[in-house]
Amino acid sequence: MLEVEDLSVSYGAVQALRGVSFEARAGQVTAVLGANGAGKTTLLRAISGLVPVQRGTVRFGSRTLTGMAPESIVQCRVGHVPEGGSVITELTVEENLELGAAWRYRRRQRAEHIEEVYALFPPLKERAKQRASSLSGGERQMLAIGRAVVSHPELLLLDEPSLGLAPIVTANLMAVLVELTEREGITVVLVEQNARSALSIASWAIVINLGSVVVSDRAEIVAADSDLRHHYLGF
């Protein structure tokens, strides 16, 4: 279980997060929703140590992550798929996946875990030896997610995986996420502007506005609340 308590982050004069608290249960998808600039990306970056935290704590299981370096947080089995995926375009698909597995597995074991990713995302296998720069947007997201899950994380942070994807591609991606969550019992934090698709697979949802949590409730309830949808989620 991920517990975030009273988290505040600022970029110089910009206060991006103002005392955010929430929990994400194991084996469930928790959606983090909110308009552009609300602070969703900052929240994920603070959890995985990419931006310094001003105040508050992040705990995952028995560990306190706050103050740790990102490369150490990864070793606590936290996978982060950043906004835009940030696959390394200069490397091949396989090399990207190798890197995802390298901190955890010796060379010989890696192949087998990479095969699992290929089973999850078959298009990647066809392009294994190609540079990631040649992938389409959807394939890049697959690679970014594959690269994070190849090391079997217990917590998966996803930053707008559907950004710029066609609805059908998004639907496939969401289906894979559901499969992963159920099969491996991972804790998933799914940041989305595309609230509809996120709510369709989430059990719990929080809505962030101007750096503060304004709603925290079961996903069906958030999805059903038309005022809320209208006000913060734009659908």
Binding site: S10, G12, A13, V14, Q15, Q54
Partner: peptide, 9 residues
């Protein structure tokens, strides 16, 4: 506001 925040933090 932003200046005031900066000074307090």
């Amino acid at each position: 506001i932003s200046v005031a925040l900066q000074h307090t933090t």
